[in-house]
Design a protein around this nucleic acid. Sequence first.
RNA 1: GCGCCUGUGGCUCAGUUGGAUAGAGCAACGGACUUCUAAUCCGUAGGUCAGAGGUUCGAAUCCUCUCAGGCGCGCCA
Length: 561
Amino acid sequence: MKELLRTLISKGLADCYADGSLSSGQFPSIVMETPAHAEHGDFATNVAMLLAKAEKKAPRMVADTLVRHFTDEAGICEKVEIAGPGFINFHLKDAAWRKSLLDIDRLAGDYGKSAVGGGRKIQVEFVSANPTGPLHIGHGRGAALGDTICRLLAFSGWDVTREFYYNDAGQQIANLALSVQARCLGKGPEDPSWPTDGYQGEYIIDVARAYMAGEKVDADDQHVVAAGDPLDLEAIRRFAVAFLRREQDQDLTAFDVHFNVYSLESDLYKDGTVDMVVRRLVESGHTFEQDDALWLRTTSFGDDKDRVMRKSGGGYTYFVPDVAYHLRKWERGFTRVVNEQGADHHSTITRVRAGLQALGAGIPAGWPEYVLHQMVTVLRGGEEVKISKRAGSYVTLRDLIDEVGRDATRFFFVMRKPDSQLVFDIDLAKQKSLDNPVYYVQYAHARICSIFENAAEKGFAVPDAGSVDLDRLTEPEEMALIKAIAAFPEVVEGSAANFEPHRVANYLQEVAGLFHGFYNKNRVITEDSQLTSARLFLLQCVALTLKNALTLLGISAPEKM
RNA sequence: GCGCCUGUGGCUCAGUUGGAUAGAGCAACGGACUUCUAAUCCGUAGGUCAGAGGUUCGAAUCCUCUCAGGCGCGCCA
C-alpha cells in the first residue's frame, strides 16, 4: 500500500517536470510515513517540503502542484489533501484496507516474508562463549538477540549462516584444564597448590568426576572419550572443552537456538591461517618491532593506540586469530557479516577492522557489522544478584529457562533495544499477570483460538476468502486491527534492516492490545451469520499475524492458556 | 584523562531513521463479568524529552559543550 503510493507520487512528480509545472528536476527519495494522528490520514509524505527550496516556491504550492498531477490509478484513496507546512496526506478507502485481509489470509505462514535479501549470503556470529563454564545471563541476551536477528533475516530472504566461534586453546582454556586437574586430584580452591586464576565453580567438579569415570562426550563436531588419567593435562583439556561445549549446547537447545557452523580458534593455528595473516601483515608494511614484540600500527586505521600482535615471550595476542578468522569469513563469500556481542568487547571492533584493512584484501572499511548489547543485571527479590564468574556465583541461562520459562525469557531479552542496559527482574518474568507482556500477547492468540472453538460448536467455521463479505467490517476497532496487521511486513523490514528485534516485541503488544480492545467491545459470534463470518475471517488474519511475529521471536503461540 | 552506550511522566520503556498536538505498560484514582477466557477492557490524573548553545521551514531525534550513570581503555579473551 505504502509502496504503491510512493510509485504513484514519483510518477506524478515526473509528470510535473514533463509539463513544466515544476522545474528543479530533483527526485528526492520519497518518504511515506504513517502519521501519528488519525486526522492526518493513513499515510503522509513530505516531498513537497523537500522540493520547496530547489523550486523556490512555498511548500504548500509545490504540494498543490503535485496533488494535481497525482492520479489514483488503483482507486484506493478516499481523499488526498495538503496540510500543515506542506504535508500531502492520503486518506485511504476502508474498502482498500479490507482487501488487504485477502492477501494476509492467502499468504498465511508466509505473511510478512519478503525478498529484500534476494537469497544473498549473510553470516551472523553470536554467543561465541568460550567453553570455560555454563552460559550466563549475558550470553542469554546474545543468544536471544542473535537468533531473532537470524530469523528476521531469513524471513526477509537472506541466506543465513548461524555461526558460533570459540577459543579452545588459549590461556583461559589452560586454566580450565588445570582447574579440572586439581579437582581430579581432590583439591579445592582453599588448597595452597590450587592454580592461580583457576575456575572455582562447582561445575568443575562435575567435569572432573565425568573425566575420571571415563565418560564419552559428543558436542558440536567433537567426540571425546575421557582418558581418566589425572596427569594427562592435554586429555583433560580436550575432555573439559567438549564437556562444557555439550553443556552449552544443551542450554541453547532448550532455548531453541541452533547453529550451522562451529569455528574453533585452534583450527586457525593448525591450518596455518594465523601464520599466513601475520606474514601478510608484515609484508603490508603496517607492522613494526619494539620491545621484543611485533606490533600492528592500528592507529593508521582509527585506533587510539597501536596493538601488540606477537608478545615478547612468543605467542600471539587474541586479536590476531580474530583477524585471521574474519579474513576466512570474507573468503568464504560472506560480503555481509554481523557479529552479535556484549558491549564489553567493544574495543575488538576497531582492532579487527584495522587488521583487515591493513591486509589490503579489498574488504570494505565498515566490514563486519556489529550488534552490541549492553549489560544485563539480574534482580531477584528486589535485590541485584552480583556475578562473579571465577567464584562461580552467577545466574545461568539454564537457571532462567528452568525458572522463568523459555518464552518469557526470550521475550524479556529482546524487549529492549540492544543499546540499553537490561534489568532482568526474575520475579516479574515469572508472574502470570498484567505486568508480564509475554502473557498479554500469548493470551490474545489463545483467546482467538478459543473463539474459533466456540464458533465451531455453534456451527460457524472461519470462511474462505471467496465467501466472506468484508464490507461488514465497519467498526473503528475492526479498522484499527486491519491497519495494524497490514503494517506487519514493514515492521519486519525495519526490524531486520536495523537488527532491532525489539520492534517486533513492541508491535506484538500493540496488536494484542487492539485485539483485546475489540474483543471487549464487540461480540464475534452473533445471530448475524454474515457479520460473524467476517469477524472470524478478520480474527484468523490477526491470529496468524500474531503467530508469525511470535515465531520470529522464537516464542510459542499457544491455542489454550 | 580518552573511546563507546545511555539519560523521555513516580517506575519500566516506545518514539516509523528530521515531521504535524511526545506515546504505551506498571503504580494511583474511578468504572465494566447472568455474554465467545476479567491472564481482559474503558475512563481520569501525571512531561522544562538531563542542561546549554547550534544546524533549518521543523529537533526527543543531527552537531558542539556541560552534567549524571554503565562498559571498555593489558604483551588477558
